[in-house]
Amino acid sequence: MSQSITPSNFKSLAPNPEMQGQMGDLGNPISEFIQETLALTKRLFIQLKRRPSTLIAGVIQPLMWLILFGALFYQAPQGFLGTDISYGKFLAPGVIVFTAFSGALNAGLPVMFDREFGFLNRLLVAPLATRYSIVAASTIYIISLAFIQTAVIVAASAFLGAGLPGFAGLSAIALLVFLVVLGVTALSLGLAFALPGHIELIAVIFVTNLPLLFASTALAPLSFMANWLQWIASLNPLTYAIEPIRYIYLNDGWGLGSTVMEAPWGTLNFATVLLVLLVFDAAILFAIQPLLRRRFA
C-alpha cells in the first residue's frame, strides 16, 4: 500500500543540510567534470592493473632500442656524429620521444574497443555533466603512462652512460614529452571516433609509426640525410621535441634563446620549437572539436 504525503511527514522526506551541501557540490559543472574524469581515469588504471602487459612492453621495448642500437654502433668511429659523443647518448632523446609518441598513437584503441563492445554507448547515454570527460580521462591516462616510460628511459640512459640532466633539464624534457603526447593523443582519439573499427585504426598506426620515426632525427642527425628527407624531417613534430631534448643532454648551459635545431631554412631556438609544438597541439585540438561534438550529440 502506498503512503500518502501529508504535511506532517513531508518534512521527514526533505534532505538534511549535509545532503543539500553534497547536492550543491554535485550541481557544480566543474566538480562534476572532475569527478567523472577521475572515475573514468581510475577505470583505465584498474584495467592496466589487471593487464599490466601493456606497460611492461612499453618499458621493455625502448630499453631494447637503447641497448641494441647502442651495441650496433659501438664500433663506430669516434666523432662520426660531428662531436665526441657516443651514439647511445645521441640516441636517448630519440627513444624518449618516440616511445611517448607510440604510446600516444595507441591512445584511441581503448576507446575504439569500448565502442565495439558497447560500453561507450552506455557512457554516452549516462547523465554525464559533459561527455568530454571521456576524452579527458583517456588523455590523463596516456600522459601518465608516457611519464612513467620517460622516467625509466632517462634512468636507463644514465646507467648506460648518457648522463643525467639537472632538475631544470628534466622539467624541460617533461614539458616537451607532454606537448608531444597531448597532440598525438588528441589525434588518436579523434581517429577512434572517426574510423569504423579497430582494424582501420591499427592500420593507420602501423602506416604512421615507423615512417615518422625514420623521417625524424631520432636515429640520425639532419646532416646525414638526403636533402629531400631533411625537409621532411624538419616538418616532423617529433623532430621539434627530439632536438631540444638532445641539446639538453649535450649542453649543461641552455635557455630559451639557445639554438637547438639547424633546419634547411634556418636555425630554431628553444622558444621557437616550443611554440611550434604548441601550435601543433592547438591545431589538432581545434580540428577534432567538430567531430567530437557530432559524436557526442
Rank of each mutant, 00 (worst) to 15 (best):
L81V: 01
P93V: 08
V95G: 07
P264D: 03
L268F: 11
N227T: 15
L44I: 12
V111D: 07
D25W: 11
S102A: 12
A220V: 12
P211Y: 00
A241D: 07
A104N: 04
Y132T: 09
S258V: 02
W265T: 05
P127G: 00
F101C: 01
G169C: 06
L176T: 02
V260R: 01
G58H: 04
Y247G: 01
V204K: 03
I248M: 02
L201H: 05
I142R: 15
G118P: 02
V207A: 05
I60Y: 10
S157N: 03
T272D: 11
F98R: 02
D252N: 13
Y132M: 13
W265K: 03
T41R: 06
P290M: 04
F224V: 06
G82Y: 09
L145F: 07
I248E: 06
A174F: 02
A104R: 03
F33S: 14
I205W: 10
N28W: 05
L189A: 05
L72R: 09
R293H: 13
W254T: 09
L291N: 03
A263Y: 03
M19T: 11
L187W: 13
R246H: 02
F33P: 03
M23A: 08
I142L: 08
A297H: 12
I96L: 12
I60P: 11
M225S: 10
Q149C: 02
A92N: 06
S31T: 14
G27M: 09
R51M: 11
A14K: 10
I202Q: 13
P196F: 01
R122I: 06
G190F: 05
I245W: 03
L187K: 09
L72A: 13
W265R: 02
W228I: 08
G24F: 13
F270H: 00
E243Q: 05
G190C: 04
T239R: 05
G183D: 01
F206R: 14
N236R: 01
A215K: 09
A297Q: 13
R115T: 07
V204H: 06
P211C: 01
T239S: 06
F117I: 06
L179K: 10
N209T: 09
F33T: 11
A39L: 14
L219C: 03
L268K: 09
V154Y: 10
P237C: 02
L170W: 06
I134D: 00
F119G: 10
G70L: 09
D84N: 15
I46T: 13
L229I: 11
Q3F: 13
V135C: 05
N28D: 14
S234I: 05
E262Y: 13
P15F: 13
